[in-house]
């Protein structure tokens, strides 16, 4: 055995990888290909599939009904990412400028909601936002500030709020990681060279934190685009995203080929976003995990 390993060093690597490779090729890569194949098939009359090649499913994704949902999902994910950046950057900056001991406490405090079940965090907002029985509307009405409930629930606002809440730590952590590495003497050097604080930010802090910003944006955008739980709970059955349309094809409409095609288009959009990320950044600009 030892001699075999000495002669073929890759043998040892593949033996170590064998379980992972087997598992992932059978239970991940194979399903991925099956979905791809399914997306080119036709739907059977009573659910199921007919083995007939067809591009109909992909054509249908461009039907106004589905295409508009795609666009809306894209819009919601983009707005979510933007708001996360707007809220997350100062928060990351705040954490990074605290003394080291405080910093690790604050990061831990950021991780706790993050490690809490996503479903529960979404449910928490449900109890706050619901139109007639949500805490916010009930409180505001009983205080006499408003006499009609505010439209906080079952719309894009609720979904975006839920997504921002859910993914904000994903934006803050990578930005914090770059800001923390930032050499404070750079800032001192900049102000020593007569830069005002806004200029220090624009010319030094922002460019240097860009890798974190880009990484954070990816980490927020991709799961927001593929969101399923948030619109299912906070969308109130009215405001839907692409993830819900996909799930409907499997749970209600029994149109598996079309659901496959939709999820493929969704993954293609994400792949595109990832590629743009890798193209627009050099390896130094990218976050090192």
């Amino acid at each position: 055995m030892q001699r075999l390993f000495a002669r073929y060093p890759a043998l040892r690597a593949w033996l170590l990888l064998l379980p992972a490779a087997t598992w992932l090729f059978i239970f991940f890569i194979a399903p991925l290909f099956i979905v791809l194949v399914y997306s080119f098939l036709e739907r059977g009359t009573y659910g199921g599939v007919v083995w007939q090649f067809s591009l109909e499913n992909f054509r249908r994704t461009f039907d106004s009904l589905y295409f508009s949902t795609f666009l809306r999902s894209f819009y919601i994910a983009a707005v979510t990412t933007f708001i996360c950046l707007l809220l997350g950057f100062p928060l990351a900056y705040y954490i990074s400028t605290r003394p080291p001991q405080r910093r690790s406490t604050l990061i831990l405090a950021l991780m706790i909601p993050f490690w809490t079940n996503f479903l529960i965090r979404t449910y928490a907002w449900l109890t706050l936002l619901r139109t007639n029985t949500g805490l916010i509307n009930v409180s505001l009405m009983s205080l006499g500030i408003i006499d009609k409930p505010l439209p906080l629930f079952g719309n894009d606002f609720a979904i975006i709020l839920g997504l921002v809440y859910g993914w904000l730590p994903d934006m803050v952590l990578p930005i914090y990681a770059t800001l923390e590495r930032l050499d404070t003497s750079l800032l001192e050097a900049a102000s020593d060279l007569y830069a005002s604080s806004s200029k220090v930010f624009r010319r030094v802090i922002w460019p240097l934190s860009l890798p974190g910003v880009v990484a954070g944006s990816m980490l927020v955008f991709i799961p927001s685009l593929g969101a399923f739980v948030t619109p299912a709970i906070l969308g109130g059955g009215k405001s839907l995203m692409i993830g819900n349309i996909i799930s409907n094809q499997f749970l209600a409409a029994h149109d598996w080929p079309f659901g496959s095609a939709l999820s493929f288009v969704m993954m293609a959009v994400m792949l595109l976003a990832t590629l743009i990320y890798f193209r627009s950044t050099t390896s130094e600009e990218r976050m090192q995990p």
Binding site: P9, A10, R12, A13, W14, L16, L17, A20, A21, L24, F25, F28, I29, P31, L32, I34, V35, I222, P223, L225, G226, A227, F228, G243, I246, S247, F250, G259, S260, S263, M266, M267, M270, T274
Partner: peptide, 27 residues
């Protein structure tokens, strides 16, 4: 280890992390 197919394996290992839950679920 350095071996042929490492890049492919890297991609296979990263994909389940990147792919959204819903896509992996229906797959």
């Amino acid at each position: 280890h350095v071996f042929r197919g490492k890049l492919l394996m890297d991609a296979v290992l990263y994909l389940p992390i990147i792919i959204p839950d819903i896509a992996m679920a229906i797959m």
